[in-house]
């Protein structure tokens, strides 16, 4: 109990220290270069009050959400399909690996060229980035499938469909979540990048808007808001995962973090 209290105290001390550091840097550099924590908060308040923050955030989240579904759903289903088609699977795997290795964000200019500076190009970037992340995580799950459990279910009289429903699907859930957990911050990040390159709305645009006005307050406020959204989305996914996977022994912080992608 005392060690827990100590941890809380430590964390507060570190947090206050970081804020102080920010404040000192601000005082040394000036508002033009770095707005103070208070100024940033004020600017966030202004943006929130005027409804601008919500408008831009909604745009970014919409792009991330559409792209997530567009890329994530095929990435989720394909491994299950390929499980039954080993030859097809072996044939396309090198292409998938290449697609995974490729920096999808580098395709952003191409998508902007194709789809214009509207939401479509952002959705395309997010979908391209999400697809491979989800695909490879789920694929690992389908591969790691415990064959003994499949066999046992068959011995107990399970049909092909029942094996899929009762053994393969629940067994893959942790991996599906690993994919979703990895892809969530990535999807939001990808939408923001596409907006940074070319857009007239969204959180990425808000950062660029601040930059073009040499307004550090707006830039930092937009970055803080985006970070908060990513952290919020992460905790929603984590809570959902904890609930769906309550049958699993609890794993530590490092175990979860080790499968992350940033």
């Amino acid at each position: 109990m005392t060690s827990r209290v100590r941890t809380v105290v430590d964390r507060v001390v570190v947090g206050v220290g970081l804020l102080l550091l920010w404040q000192v840097a601000h005082m040394a550099a000036g508002t033009y270069w770095l707005s103070s924590p208070w100024q940033t908060l004020q600017r966030l308040g202004e943006l929130a009050a005027s409804g601008e923050l919500a408008r831009h955030a909604a745009y970014t989240l919409r792009a991330a959400g559409y792209g997530f579904v567009l890329g994530g759903v095929p990435g989720l289903l394909l491994p299950f399909l390929l499980r039954r088609l080993p030859i097809v699977s072996a044939t396309i795997m090198p292409f998938m690996v290449a697609g995974y290795g490729l920096p999808k964000l580098a395709l952003a200019p191409l998508f902007i060229l194709w789809f214009g500076i509207g939401i479509e190009s952002k959705v395309a970037v997010v979908a391209a980035a999400t697809f491979f992340l989800v695909f490879f995580n789920v694929e690992a799950g389908v591969r790691a499938l415990d064959l003994k459990l499949v066999r046992m279910a068959q011995i107990l009289g399970a049909s092909e469909m029942q094996v899929a429903r009762h053994v393969i699907l629940p067994g893959a859930v942790p991996f599906v979540f690993a994919g979703i957990r990895t892809a969530t911050p990535y999807a939001i990040g990808a939408a923001v990048i596409a907006e940074l390159i070319s857009s007239n709305r969204g959180l990425g645009y808000l950062v660029q808007l601040g930059a073009s006005n040499f307004d550090a307050r707006t830039m930092i406020a937009a970055v803080v808001a985006t970070t908060a959204i990513v952290v919020g989305a992460n905790s929603v996914v984590n809570a959902l995962e904890r609930w769906l996977l309550r049958w699993r022994p609890r794993s530590g912080f490092a175990a979860g973090a080790a499968s992350g992608e940033f």
Binding site: G189, L196, T227, V231
Partner: peptide, 20 residues
């Protein structure tokens, strides 16, 4: 002590920092 801050900082969209 620093775990929550490290985790939070992972949420920062790195490329959004470029203009800054």
């Amino acid at each position: 002590a620093i775990e929550p801050y490290v985790m939070t900082s992972m949420g920062i969209p790195l490329f959004a920092l470029v203009p800054l």
